[in-house]
Amino acid sequence: MADKPTGPFVPQPLPIKGVRGIDPNVFIDKDGQAYLYWSQGNIYGAKLKENMLELASEPKTLGELPTKGLKEGPYLFERKGIYYLTYPHVANKTERLEYATSTSPLGPFTVKGVIMDESPTGCWTNHHSLLQFNNQWYLFYHHNDLSPKFDKNRSVRIDSLSFAADGSIRKVTPTLRGVGLTDARQKIQIDRYSRLSKQGAAIAFLDTANTFRGGKRSSPAAPAGCSTTASRLAPKR
């Protein structure tokens, strides 16, 4: 623990008593009460004492979640009085991101749906977090983009996330370009030019053994007003 976010941090001699598992997530409610969530086959939650080092309640199994398939990586947040418990779940072959809602931090929860489908490339895990910044919600998650042959090495992705009027989370489809604005006067990476996908274009690595060399556009001709290099797409001036 530390007395400021930047540390220095001092390891505690013992783990929190009564907690056995992985993927801890701490949520602090509007009234200041802190909760700890973790996973170990199921997902568990409990209140934390003010010192943040001891449980203030017995661990509760959040048993309203799916019983079939691995569940882990819980992340809880609150929005407009609704508590969202989000978690990776292996419903089929690999993890997808799902969520359940409640009017209480410890449930009971009702499963609502899928935030992000399984990866089409077969990356087995997908752990995540969600937060709001400047009135926009974002989903942080991971993939094996930088290690396509070994999905235990994971790189971070981010995409925008939104809610429907009834509070449900709209499913997020990876954009492969993340968030933010690209200066139209600058060269941009081919895989960040979203309109190419509508014209049947595809990209491929220049060298699959060294993916950091970049990529190339494989088809078709570049859109009018654009020219290409081996790894970038740039507007003509």
Rank of each mutant, 00 (worst) to 15 (best):
P5G: 07
S39A: 15
A184H: 13
W137Y: 12
F205D: 14
I169M: 06
L14G: 03
G81I: 13
L36E: 00
S219E: 12
L14Q: 15
S197I: 14
L176I: 05
A184T: 12
L76R: 03
K17R: 14
S197R: 13
Y83W: 11
R213C: 03
N153I: 00
L55T: 10
R185Y: 14
Y99L: 06
Y84C: 02
V114K: 04
K49L: 13
I16S: 06
R195E: 14
Y87A: 09
G41M: 02
T121L: 09
P74G: 11
T229D: 10
P220F: 15
I203G: 02
V90P: 04
T67K: 14
Q186L: 13
V19W: 11
G122S: 04
I190G: 01
A46R: 05
A100V: 01
S197D: 08
I188R: 14
E78K: 14
F212A: 12
E58T: 14
S162P: 03
A222M: 14
I82Y: 07
N126V: 01
D191Q: 11
D117T: 12
P223I: 06
K17Y: 12
G178D: 05
V111E: 05
V179Q: 02
L139Y: 00
G81Q: 13
T121W: 12
I169K: 11
A184R: 07
H128Q: 09
E78P: 07
P105M: 13
E58G: 09
T211K: 02
G69P: 10
P13F: 00
Y99T: 09
G18N: 06
P108V: 09
E50Y: 04
Y44P: 02
I188L: 13
G41E: 12
G122A: 03
S160E: 12
V179M: 01
A224K: 15
S147V: 01
L65Q: 03
C123S: 06
G21F: 08
V10L: 10
Q189L: 13
